[in-house]
């Protein structure tokens, strides 16, 4: 191959984002007649952490990477817009937001030396707990693992104890009782076999997270325009398929959780109301911190009508 790109992915080799990337690489290789070859390195094998991926691509440490937008808010704060709690209720909302936000993200990322090839969301978010949760009271004092500013804030406002915890600590902490609850997608819950420690799953759908597959611009500009067109077309063709895979994930994973003895329920209205109230001011706070988000969010609210 004329071009050989290493692609860094933090997720394990069997997660759907990884298999998507594999498929993308195969199709690109096919359409470019083998001229552009991508090697998918899963599980962070290249040592590039999820929250350091944007910088790694910008610096040219690695030509391509996939990362979750919200994990790189330290670089571009606007990447956190989709994780404003309860901003997005489903894939249609998310698509509407992406239509408005993605061009802005792409422009920001271009300034940071990278081009977005495709964007694929994680499935809907859930709370996984040891004890049943019907009302807000049931959450008081529950020790929940959080992973960033937004989730830590939200959890604290719900009366829970926000425990920052690194990945290697989570499973032992669940086993020993240091940790009572986690929030994540069904994909991760199944991958980590949470039914071994946690009994209840509540689809809270409190925030959304999308992954960006990006390529370093210097590398990209080295391709001839025909190859660029082919790769763009491949990404354009595959992205809707990848979204369908993401949509199917939630139900599929919830079934697996049920089959392994977990109770899977929608979050009660009382809980959802409480969560919404606790997080109501977060959109305003996000806009205060990032004034550039104001027109985007206005346009989004107009488009989805809520």
């Amino acid at each position: 191959a004329d071009v050989q790109w290493d692609v860094s992915l933090p997720w394990g080799p069997t997660e759907f984002h990884s298999t998507n990337a594999q498929k993308f690489a195969e199709e690109v290789k096919a359409v470019t007649g083998g001229a552009v070859e991508m090697t998918i390195h899963t599980g962070g094998a290249l040592g590039i952490k999820a929250n350091e991926s944007l910088r790694a691509v910008e610096d040219g440490a690695v030509p391509m990477a996939e990362y979750a937008a919200f994990q790189n808010v330290g670089e571009i704060p606007l990447l956190g817009v989709e994780s404003i709690p309860f901003l997005i209720s489903d894939y249609n909302d998310l698509a509407a937001l992406m239509k408005i936000v993605r061009p802005v993200w792409e422009a920001e990322l271009q300034k940071r030396g990278q081009k977005v090839l495709y964007v694929v969301p994680w499935p809907s978010q859930n709370f996984f707990t040891k004890t049943p949760v019907a009302t807000l009271d049931d959450l008081k004092g529950v020790r929940m693992r959080t992973y960033d500013r937004v989730t830590a804030d939200m959890v604290t406002r719900l009366g829970m104890v926000a425990l920052q915890m690194n990945n290697p600590d989570i499973v032992p902490a669940l086993a020993s009782g240091k940790l009572d609850a986690v929030m994540t997608s069904g994909t991760t819950a199944v991958a980590q076999k949470y039914w071994e420690f946690l009994k209840h799953a509540y689809n809270t759908n409190h925030m959304w997270a999308s992954n960006l597959m990006v390529v370093n611009l210097d590398e990209w500009n080295r391709l001839d325009p025909k190859q660029q067109k082919m790769i763009e077309a491949t990404a354009h063709k595959l992205e809707p398929q990848f979204w369908e895979i993401s949509k199917a994930e939630h139900a599929k994973r919830m079934d697996e959780l049920r089959a392994n003895g977990m109770t899977v329920e929608p979050a009660s209205d009382a809980l959802k109301t409480a969560m919404r109230e606790a997080t109501a001011s977060m959109e305003g706070e996000f806009v205060t911190a990032n004034p550039a988000a104001a027109p985007l969010l206005d346009a989004y609210h107009k488009a989805v009508g809520h």
Binding site: P168, V171, Q192, E196
Partner: peptide, 22 residues
């Protein structure tokens, strides 16, 4: 002998139960 960092890494990559590995 648990806890073990390599087991946790393997469990996540290979999609097997970390508890069972321990």
């Amino acid at each position: 002998i648990p806890p073990s960092i390599p087991m946790i890494v393997y469990g996540v990559l290979a999609n097997v139960s970390i508890l069972e590995l321990f």
